[in-house]
């Protein structure tokens, strides 16, 4: 085997992990959470750490729960609680909102599988 042969194999081996990293890292899983309110605009939050995020809306405080890379409204000041009924958001592109409180949450990622979700 010649030197360029070895070089080629070594370089390919070096690039391989990069390809895996780039194409597998996101794998359709959400990368971050976007919380939107008309007052504070779009705020990005990461999904790595399980926690509760408190968001001030027009009616009061909505609580957004982050767990295992998924998210949901776990507490809401609105009377109907539709936002809580809509359950966990699991896919990038998924969006739900508490309309009376004017708070929306969305999962987003650079390589999301869906550009929009119909329901």
């Amino acid at each position: 085997m010649t030197r360029p042969d070895w070089l080629l194999i070594i370089i390919t081996l070096a690039i391989l992990p990069m390809i895996y990293e780039r194409l597998w890292r996101t794998s359709g899983e959400a990368e971050y959470l976007v919380i939107y309110t008309p007052e504070s605009g779009r705020q990005q939050h990461d999904l790595h750490e399980d926690r509760l995020i408190k968001v001030a809306g027009v009616l009061g405080e909505s609580v957004v729960e982050v767990r295992n890379g998924h998210t949901r409204f776990s507490k809401a000041p609105c009377p109907g609680k539709y936002c809580m009924h809509s359950g966990w958001l699991t896919e990038s592109g998924h969006i739900t909102a508490c309309l009376p409180n004017r708070v929306s949450i969305q999962l987003a990622g650079d390589m999301q599988r869906f550009d929009a979700i119909n329901f």
Partner: peptide, 9 residues
């Protein structure tokens, strides 16, 4: 093309 998911009812 655009990819649209349909949420399970």
């Amino acid at each position: 093309p655009w990819n649209i998911g349909i949420r399970s009812p």
